[in-house]
Protein backbone atom coordinates (compact mmCIF):
# COMPACT_ATOMS: atom_id res chain seq x y z
CA UNK A 1 0.00 0.00 0.00
CA UNK A 2 2.81 2.39 0.91
CA UNK A 3 4.59 1.50 -2.32
CA UNK A 4 1.47 2.03 -4.41
CA UNK A 5 0.90 5.43 -2.78
CA UNK A 6 4.50 6.36 -3.56
CA UNK A 7 3.99 5.19 -7.16
CA UNK A 8 0.96 7.48 -7.46
CA UNK A 9 2.89 10.40 -5.95
CA UNK A 10 5.79 9.89 -8.36
CA UNK A 11 3.40 9.64 -11.32
CA UNK A 12 1.73 12.94 -10.42
CA UNK A 13 5.17 14.50 -9.97
CA UNK A 14 6.22 13.27 -13.44
CA UNK A 15 3.09 14.78 -14.99
CA UNK A 16 3.58 18.13 -13.25
CA UNK A 17 7.33 18.33 -13.86
CA UNK A 18 8.42 20.67 -16.68
CA UNK A 19 12.15 19.96 -16.62
CA UNK A 20 12.76 16.79 -18.62
CA UNK A 21 15.84 16.01 -16.53
CA UNK A 22 13.58 15.80 -13.49
CA UNK A 23 11.17 13.59 -15.44
CA UNK A 24 13.96 11.14 -16.30
CA UNK A 25 15.14 10.93 -12.71
CA UNK A 26 11.56 10.51 -11.45
CA UNK A 27 11.01 7.78 -14.04
CA UNK A 28 14.06 6.00 -12.60
CA UNK A 29 12.57 6.31 -9.12
CA UNK A 30 9.28 4.98 -10.50
CA UNK A 31 11.10 1.94 -11.89
CA UNK A 32 12.78 1.22 -8.56
CA UNK A 33 9.42 1.50 -6.77
CA UNK A 34 7.91 -0.82 -9.36
CA UNK A 35 10.75 -3.29 -8.79
CA UNK A 36 9.99 -3.18 -5.04
CA UNK A 37 6.31 -3.84 -5.76
CA UNK A 38 7.28 -6.84 -7.90
CA UNK A 39 9.48 -8.16 -5.09
CA UNK A 40 6.54 -7.88 -2.72
CA UNK A 41 4.54 -9.88 -5.28
CA UNK A 42 7.32 -12.55 -5.23
CA UNK A 43 8.23 -11.97 -8.88
CA UNK A 44 11.97 -11.60 -8.32
CA UNK A 45 12.99 -12.30 -11.92
CA UNK A 46 10.75 -9.54 -13.23
CA UNK A 47 11.84 -7.21 -10.42
CA UNK A 48 15.45 -7.74 -11.41
CA UNK A 49 14.67 -6.92 -15.03
CA UNK A 50 12.71 -3.84 -14.02
CA UNK A 51 15.52 -2.58 -11.80
CA UNK A 52 18.28 -3.17 -14.37
CA UNK A 53 16.42 -2.13 -17.54
CA UNK A 54 13.85 0.36 -16.28
CA UNK A 55 15.95 2.14 -13.69
CA UNK A 56 19.42 1.48 -15.09
CA UNK A 57 19.84 1.39 -18.83
CA UNK A 58 16.66 3.34 -19.73
CA UNK A 59 17.66 6.21 -17.45
CA UNK A 60 21.13 6.37 -19.00
CA UNK A 61 19.76 6.26 -22.56
CA UNK A 62 17.10 8.87 -21.77
CA UNK A 63 19.80 11.12 -20.31
CA UNK A 64 21.86 10.60 -23.46
CA UNK A 65 18.77 11.60 -25.45
CA UNK A 66 18.33 14.73 -23.33
CA UNK A 67 21.85 15.64 -24.39
CA UNK A 68 20.57 15.72 -27.99
CA UNK A 69 17.37 17.71 -27.47
CA UNK A 70 16.01 20.63 -25.47
CA UNK A 71 15.59 19.83 -21.82
CA UNK A 72 12.47 21.80 -20.97
CA UNK A 73 9.00 20.73 -21.93
CA UNK A 74 6.95 23.45 -23.57
CA UNK A 75 3.92 24.67 -21.67
CA UNK A 76 0.83 23.39 -23.44
CA UNK A 77 -1.41 26.03 -24.96
CA UNK A 78 -4.80 24.62 -24.07
CA UNK A 79 -6.16 22.31 -21.43
CA UNK A 80 -6.43 18.68 -22.51
CA UNK A 81 -9.87 17.67 -21.30
CA UNK A 82 -10.50 14.82 -23.73
CA UNK A 83 -7.18 12.99 -23.10
CA UNK A 84 -7.72 13.33 -19.34
CA UNK A 85 -11.23 11.92 -19.74
CA UNK A 86 -10.02 8.99 -21.90
CA UNK A 87 -7.25 8.02 -19.50
CA UNK A 88 -9.52 8.36 -16.46
CA UNK A 89 -12.14 6.11 -18.08
CA UNK A 90 -9.48 3.56 -19.17
CA UNK A 91 -8.06 3.52 -15.65
CA UNK A 92 -11.51 3.08 -14.15
CA UNK A 93 -12.29 0.19 -16.51
CA UNK A 94 -8.99 -1.51 -15.61
CA UNK A 95 -9.67 -1.12 -11.88
CA UNK A 96 -13.19 -2.44 -12.44
CA UNK A 97 -11.64 -5.43 -14.25
CA UNK A 98 -9.46 -6.28 -11.25
CA UNK A 99 -12.56 -6.58 -9.06
CA UNK A 100 -13.54 -9.91 -10.65
CA UNK A 101 -9.99 -11.36 -10.47
CA UNK A 102 -9.44 -14.02 -7.81
CA UNK A 103 -7.63 -12.68 -4.71
CA UNK A 104 -3.84 -12.55 -4.98
CA UNK A 105 -2.14 -15.84 -4.22
CA UNK A 106 -5.20 -18.10 -4.35
CA UNK A 107 -4.08 -21.62 -5.21
CA UNK A 108 -7.25 -22.55 -7.09
CA UNK A 109 -7.21 -19.56 -9.44
CA UNK A 110 -7.75 -20.52 -13.09
CA UNK A 111 -4.23 -19.56 -14.10
CA UNK A 112 -2.73 -21.96 -11.56
CA UNK A 113 -4.72 -24.95 -12.78
CA UNK A 114 -3.78 -25.16 -16.46
CA UNK A 115 -0.13 -26.08 -17.09
CA UNK A 116 1.42 -24.74 -13.89
CA UNK A 117 1.06 -27.97 -11.84
CA UNK A 118 2.84 -29.91 -14.60
CA UNK A 119 5.67 -27.37 -14.73
CA UNK A 120 6.12 -27.45 -10.97
CA UNK A 121 5.99 -31.25 -10.81
CA UNK A 122 8.11 -32.13 -13.83
CA UNK A 123 10.64 -29.32 -14.31
CA UNK A 124 13.38 -30.95 -12.24
CA UNK A 125 12.77 -34.35 -13.80
CA UNK A 126 12.71 -33.05 -17.36
CA UNK A 127 15.33 -30.30 -17.36
CA UNK A 128 17.55 -30.65 -14.25
CA UNK A 129 16.92 -26.94 -13.63
CA UNK A 130 15.50 -26.08 -10.18
CA UNK A 131 14.33 -22.58 -11.15
CA UNK A 132 10.98 -23.15 -12.83
CA UNK A 133 10.92 -19.59 -14.20
CA UNK A 134 14.15 -20.19 -16.12
CA UNK A 135 12.92 -23.57 -17.37
CA UNK A 136 9.65 -22.09 -18.61
CA UNK A 137 11.39 -19.14 -20.26
CA UNK A 138 14.17 -20.97 -22.02
CA UNK A 139 12.68 -24.43 -22.54
CA UNK A 140 8.91 -24.88 -22.36
CA UNK A 141 8.35 -21.45 -23.90
CA UNK A 142 11.54 -21.36 -25.94
CA UNK A 143 9.75 -19.99 -28.99
CA UNK A 144 8.57 -16.94 -27.05
CA UNK A 145 12.04 -16.20 -25.76
CA UNK A 146 13.46 -16.64 -29.27
CA UNK A 147 10.89 -14.08 -30.40
CA UNK A 148 11.94 -11.70 -27.61
CA UNK A 149 15.59 -12.06 -28.56
CA UNK A 150 14.66 -11.30 -32.17
CA UNK A 151 12.77 -8.21 -31.01
CA UNK A 152 15.83 -6.96 -29.13
CA UNK A 153 17.99 -7.74 -32.17
CA UNK A 154 15.63 -5.84 -34.48
CA UNK A 155 15.35 -2.89 -32.08
CA UNK A 156 19.12 -2.64 -31.74
CA UNK A 157 19.69 -2.78 -35.50
CA UNK A 158 16.89 -0.26 -36.11
CA UNK A 159 18.16 2.34 -33.65
CA UNK A 160 21.70 1.96 -34.91
CA UNK A 161 20.59 2.47 -38.51
CA UNK A 162 18.61 5.58 -37.57
CA UNK A 163 21.24 7.23 -35.36
CA UNK A 164 24.43 6.24 -37.16
CA UNK A 165 23.17 6.94 -40.66
CA UNK A 166 22.39 10.52 -39.66
CA UNK A 167 25.71 10.85 -37.85
CA UNK A 168 27.71 9.87 -40.92
CA UNK A 169 25.96 12.51 -42.99
CA UNK A 170 26.66 15.09 -40.28
CA UNK A 171 30.33 14.22 -40.29
CA UNK A 172 30.72 14.65 -44.04
CA UNK A 173 29.11 18.07 -43.74
CA UNK A 174 31.59 19.06 -41.09
CA UNK A 175 34.51 17.74 -43.12
CA UNK A 176 33.45 19.93 -46.01
CA UNK A 177 33.54 22.98 -43.77
CA UNK A 178 36.93 22.27 -42.20
CA UNK A 179 39.16 20.24 -44.52
Amino acid sequence: MVLLTLLAVVTVAIVRQRSLFGVVILAGIYSFLMASVLIVLDAVDVAMTEASVGAGVSTVILLATLHLIKTTEMRSVRRHVLPLFVSAVTGAVLVWGTLVLPPFGTADAVIHKHVVPRYIADTIKETNVPNVVTAVLADYRGYDTLGETTVIFTAGIGVMLLLRGARRRGRTDREKVSP
Partner: peptide
Protein backbone atom coordinates in the same frame (compact mmCIF):
# COMPACT_ATOMS: atom_id res chain seq x y z
CA UNK B 1 20.23 -14.06 -24.92
CA UNK B 2 23.12 -12.65 -22.83
CA UNK B 3 25.21 -11.91 -25.91
CA UNK B 4 22.40 -10.24 -27.84
CA UNK B 5 21.13 -8.17 -24.90
CA UNK B 6 24.59 -7.02 -23.77
CA UNK B 7 25.52 -6.15 -27.35
CA UNK B 8 22.28 -4.29 -28.07
CA UNK B 9 22.28 -2.25 -24.86
CA UNK B 10 25.92 -1.22 -25.28
CA UNK B 11 25.48 -0.46 -28.98
CA UNK B 12 22.41 1.68 -28.20
CA UNK B 13 24.41 3.63 -25.64
CA UNK B 14 27.30 4.11 -28.05
CA UNK B 15 24.92 5.22 -30.81
CA UNK B 16 23.26 7.85 -28.59
CA UNK B 17 26.51 9.15 -27.13
CA UNK B 18 28.31 9.38 -30.47
CA UNK B 19 25.34 11.16 -31.96
CA UNK B 20 25.62 13.76 -29.23
Amino acid sequence: VLITVAGTMTALFYAFVERG
